[in-house]
């Protein structure tokens, strides 16, 4: 099982994400954004949190046009797994691999704290280690995590059971309290909270570990 973690200038959760993958049994390769191909045999691509390109223009906008992105899109099209966390989620919506957009938090504040999330569906390799409706706690650390989308997009997300996580309580203005969503084939997930920062009891919580474990199991059986 191999995971690739993409590194942009300004990524700062790349090593945390790599540790979480390694602890779940993946071999991990760090991939610089200027590379044009993923390493061979990659099962999972991780797009980490941080402030790629200083959040210039829009969060994730410049990173979404990096040379490596075409091969991430091809990987997703082949049915490969892609996990985007925080800035990684912003990159995924900017590439169009996930629908909607992430805009400034409604309260204008950078929010940095552990938050309770409700698992909205367990039907994905990312969430099958949880029960639907289960509450988990992951930290958030974002300024632009206010998810918005057209009504028809929201209908599709809800109708196709593609909302992965919701904030248990109103946090940042996200429509329907959406914290994370899945692609149509359920193999691309973006979420604002940080499961990799809650993947080891030493970090103050281990609710996130199950995500990486079930992802590893998904890769073995895929």
């Amino acid at each position: 099982m191999k995971a690739a973690v993409i590194v942009f200038p300004g990524s700062n959760c790349d090593r945390d994400l790599a540790v979480a993958y390694r602890n779940a049994g993946f071999s991990v390769e760090m991939v610089w954004h200027k590379d044009t191909a993923l390493p061979s045999g990659v099962d999972v691509v991780g797009i980490p949190g941080g402030f790629s390109f200083g959040d210039y223009l829009r969060c994730g906008a410049i990173a979404a046009r990096s040379p490596i992105v075409a091969s991430i899109a091809a990987h997703a099209e082949r049915g490969g797994y892609v996990l985007g966390v925080c800035n990684g989620f912003q990159v995924l919506v900017e590439t169009g691999l996930l629908p909607g957009a992430l805009v400034r938090n409604a309260g204008l504040k950078f929010i940095c704290k552990p938050v309770a999330l409700s698992v909205a569906t367990r039907l994905s390799a990312f969430t099958s280690g949880y029960d639907t409706g289960q509450t988990v706690t992951f930290p958030v650390a974002h300024h632009d995590g206010n998810y918005t989308a057209k009504p028809e997009t929201l209908d599709a997300l809800n109708g196709e059971d593609r909302v992965a996580f919701r904030y248990a309580e109103e946090l940042n203005g996200s429509v329907d309290r959406i914290a994370g969503i899945l692609s149509e084939n359920r193999r691309v997930m973006g979420l604002m909270p940080h499961p990799e920062r809650a993947a080891d009891a030493v970090l103050g919580g281990s609710d996130g570990a199950a995500m990486f474990q079930t992802l590893a199991e998904g890769c073995v059986t895929a």
Binding site: R58, A61, I62, V93, E94, P99, G100, A101, V103, K150
Partner: peptide
Amino acid sequence: EALLANTVI
């Protein structure tokens, strides 16, 4: 269309 604006929003 390609970069400067995010036409979703």
